[in-house]
């Protein structure tokens, strides 16, 4: 029964992949080797598509693998399998947090966690900067910076932080405008 197997495989992936969507990759590679539903080469193509379509990467991957394996029902079942452990675990954690909301140790733990969580987001941001705004293979100098990208980043920064009417616009406006600039200027 392919649907049951799909659900089981993705349930396992959702249960053991900790962190971002890319954490699902090793599990999917393993799934490719064991089940023969798809090849590792197909997986690489799926990752490229998942990274370049809207939605969380892990969910996109599950949908794609499910679709490749068993059509539209497969896509649905693989995705549900992936999110089911998260839903169960987070519902338990949320109930726990509610019960201990006024506990001084829980509060103290979050006092330490919040700066750490902010730092992890900042680190992810720096990762994107290294990938995008500079050429890390070049020595430090004029050639190190990706000037067209730097210029676009500077414009977006000014428009989102300091210019009065534009700074209140929805972030998606800037995402779509930047996509258009990328296409027009052949980024």
């Amino acid at each position: 029964m392919i649907y049951l197997q799909l659900f089981y495989e993705f349930f396992k992936t959702g249960l053991f992949a900790v962190g971002g969507g890319l954490a699902t990759l090793p599990f999917l590679n393993d799934m490719a080797d064991r089940t023969g539903w798809f090849t590792r080469a197909q997986l690489a193509d799926m990752l490229a598509v998942s990274e370049s379509t809207p939605g969380p990467i892990g969910v996109n991957m599950a949908t794609y693998v499910g679709f490749t394996t068993a059509g539209i029902p497969g896509a649905l079942i693989a995705t549900l399998g992936l999110v089911t452990p998260s839903i169960i675990i987070i519902l338990i954690v949320a109930a726990f947090l509610r019960a201990f909301r006024d506990n001084k140790y829980v509060n103290a733990a979050f006092y330490g966690l919040r700066p750490a969580s902010t730092a992890m987001v900042a680190a992810a941001g720096i990762g994107v900067v290294l990938l995008t705004l500079v050429h890390t293979d070049q020595p430090l100098g004029l050639g190190f910076f990706n000037w067209p990208s730097m210029a676009l980043a500077a414009v977006v920064l000014v428009l989102t932080r300091w210019v009065k009417p534009t700074k209140d616009l929805h972030p998606i406006v800037f995402i779509l405008a930047s996509a258009a600039v990328g296409v027009a200027l052949q980024f």
Binding site: E51, S52, T118, V121, A122, A124, G125, V128, V129, L131, T132, L133, S149, L152, A153, V156, L157, T160, R161, P171, F174, I175, A177, S178, A179, A180, V181, G182, V183, L185, Q186, F187
Partner: peptide
């Protein structure tokens, strides 16, 4: 598609900075 996503990544840098 690749050009569009190169543009989007630039924007995402700034948006993440603002979020931080």
């Amino acid at each position: 598609v690749q050009h569009a996503f190169a543009g989007i990544r630039v924007c995402v840098c700034v948006l993440i900075f603002n979020a931080v």
